[in-house]
């Protein structure tokens, strides 16, 4: 019984290496080519996305800085209105 187990455990000793189908290398090259094409296609989109993001950030900064001015103006108008209703 123990010998049988040892025979099983060592049954791949001296075995030949299995070889892949001859077409596998062609498929590897095809995959590399597809990936490279995808990379080329992706690059302008990444640049466009970065430009859009930069534009959005700039627009937000501009809007926030302008809003501050508006709110300051609003507050002074409000103060004047309050002053007009002052009871003496």
């Amino acid at each position: 019984m123990e010998n049988w187990k040892e025979d099983i455990l060592n049954s791949m000793r001296g075995a030949e290496r299995a070889q892949p189908d001859p077409d596998v290398y062609k498929r590897i090259l095809a995959r590399i080519e597809i990936r490279e094409k995808l990379e080329v296609v992706k690059r302008p989109y990444v640049a466009l996305a970065a430009a859009c993001l930069a534009f959005l950030i700039m627009a937000n900064v501009y809007a926030i800085s302008n809003n501050r001015g508006v709110s300051r103006g609003g507050s002074s108008t409000y103060d004047m209105e309050i002053a007009n209703y002052n009871l003496y």
Partner: peptide, 27 residues
């Protein structure tokens, strides 16, 4: 190729899967 395919084949016990992995490895 033999080393990669044989290892993948022993691991996955499926010729189609081993060929897929061989492609993944060389990519």
């Amino acid at each position: 190729k033999g080393m990669v395919y044989n290892t993948a084949l022993s691991y996955l016990q499926d010729q189609h899967a081993a060929e897929e992995v061989t492609q993944d490895v060389f990519v």
